[in-house]
Computed example of a mutant assay.
Amino acid sequence: MFRRASRLLLSFVMLMAGAAAGVGVTATAAHADSCYTWNRTLSQGSSGGDVTQLQIRVAGWVTSGERLSYDGQYGARTTAAVKKFQSAYGLAADGVAGPATFNKIYSLQDADCTPVHFSYAELNKCNSDWSGGAVSAATAKSNALRTMWKLEAMRHALGDVPITISSGFRSRACNNAVGGSATSRH
């Protein structure tokens, strides 16, 4: 909560300083973030790792029943998800990810790239190094991050109500220790 308030205050101070100096926001201006910083405006047809980072953060805003690929290709589904994200947060919903969209994302995430309302610890209560599961530790942690951003979208869509996580990743040993099913996909 303190981090989010600090970020909002910093954003406001920077905005006011720019306004006082007569500086306008350009298409490439966005405040730096310790997790990830976008350096260009993204739109349909863009591709690259920066698009993948955007897709992770807007995947929860797809139309019900659809899935957004994390493929680094800014196609029609990414455009639609960005539009829904923008609309949900009161931004101009044009489907183009620029400074306003990135600044909103920055205000929603902590330094480890998790959304401000969720943490890795919530999704991994028994095995802090993410190993011992059906997939590699890196994949398990990446899946958790993607899940948290989808939960953040759900939380906002429900009116910013808290969501309690009761279970997430479990290594095989942890799953056995808590009496989980042998076919569990935790």
Score class of each variant (00 low, 15 high):
V135M: 14
L158Q: 08
W38V: 12
W38Y: 02
H117R: 07
I163E: 05
F85G: 08
D112N: 14
G90R: 00
S167N: 11
V178W: 01
Y70L: 15
F12T: 08
Q86L: 08
N176R: 15
V96Y: 04
I105L: 14
P99M: 01
H31P: 07
W61S: 03
R7D: 10
A138I: 07
V96Q: 10
T52F: 10
N103G: 06
W130S: 02
G90N: 01
A138E: 03
R67A: 11
H31K: 03
L42N: 07
L68C: 05
R40D: 07
F85I: 00
S69D: 07
N127S: 15
L108E: 00
I56L: 12
S11G: 00
T79M: 05
A29K: 11
Y120D: 14
A59L: 05
L108G: 04
A121M: 11
T183P: 05
L54R: 07
A140F: 01
G133W: 10
S119R: 07
A32Q: 04
A76W: 00
G18H: 00
R77P: 05
Q55R: 09
G98N: 05
G48P: 10
L10T: 14
R40N: 10
A88K: 08
R67Y: 01
R170F: 15
S87C: 01
S166D: 13
S136P: 06
N39T: 13
G133P: 13
Q44D: 03
G133T: 09
Q55Y: 09
C174S: 14
G18M: 08
S34N: 09
W61H: 09
V62F: 08
D33H: 12
D129E: 13
G22T: 01
L42S: 10
R172A: 15
V25A: 03
L108T: 01
S128G: 15
Y89N: 05
L54M: 00
A81F: 00
L15A: 06
A17Q: 03
Y120W: 13
V58L: 01
L123V: 01
S166R: 11
K104H: 06
L151N: 03
A134F: 08
F102I: 13
E122T: 01
S167Q: 12
C174E: 14
D112Y: 08
S46V: 05
A137Q: 02
A5G: 10
G49I: 08
A20R: 05
R4S: 10
I105G: 02
G48M: 09
Q73H: 13
A97K: 11
L68V: 04
A30K: 09
I56E: 10
S64P: 00
G75P: 02
C174A: 15
Y36Q: 15
G133K: 11
P162E: 04
G159L: 06
